[in-house]
């Protein structure tokens, strides 16, 4: 039952969790947990520590998991436990930060229903072209975005929750 689930907000950011993510996006979306599915980070205790500091400062819970584990964990976290006082049911959302669109794709294809996907901080790399601001993409990124959109969610480029949304072009 989809009404029984918390909203799942996806964010693509090469830098994963940093001060802005924890503070500004929480303000806008009122989530209580951040999930970071990233194979590299799951091994990197030091950067995890750094990110945990930012997460803790925003009074959030953080989960660092590998991409494969992510769908299961996200599903678990999004179940709303039926409480006796149904009208007081918490309706917060959870926030998933991925390094690249391909990670988002793997997770949504793993059966997780995304409510929104936004992109920022996709840094310049050989072969990638500037789309807007700090978003550089190549054909495979575009392909990932299409695949995500096929699951019924729109993908937009947005710097902060208060910024203008920009559509992802169909072609580079």
């Amino acid at each position: 039952m989809s009404e029984q689930q918390k909203k799942i907000v996806f964010r693509v950011d090469n830098r994963l969790v940093h001060g802005q993510i924890a503070v500004n996006w929480k303000q806008a979306y009122q989530f209580s947990a951040i999930i970071v599915p990233d194979n590299q980070l799951a091994q990197d205790k030091l950067n995890q520590t750094l990110m945990k500091m930012a997460i803790r400062a925003a009074n959030l819970k953080g989960y660092f998991v590998s991409v494969d584990e992510a769908p299961d964990i996200i599903k678990k976290l999004t179940v709303v436990h039926q409480s006796l006082l149904t009208e007081h049911r918490t309706k917060d959302s959870i926030f998933v930060v991925c390094r690249t669109p391909s990670v988002v794709r793997k997770i949504v294809e793993g059966g997780v229903k995304a409510d929104s996907v936004t992109l920022w901080n996709m840094f310049k790399q050989p072969g990638k072209k500037k789309v807007s601001g700090v978003v550089y993409m190549d054909e495979s990124d575009i392909e990932d975005v299409r695949a995500i959109e096929n699951t019924g969610v729109s993908v937009t480029i947005q710097e902060t929750p208060y910024s203008k949304k920009i559509t992802v072009p169909k072609k580079i």
């Binding site: 500004n24 303000q27 806008a28 601001g133 700090v134 710097e159 902060t160 929750p161 208060y162 910024s163 203008k164």
Partner: peptide
């Protein structure tokens, strides 16, 4: 030349 002007 692309400062972030979208502080809430």
């Amino acid at each position: 030349g692309e400062p972030n002007l979208d502080y809430h």
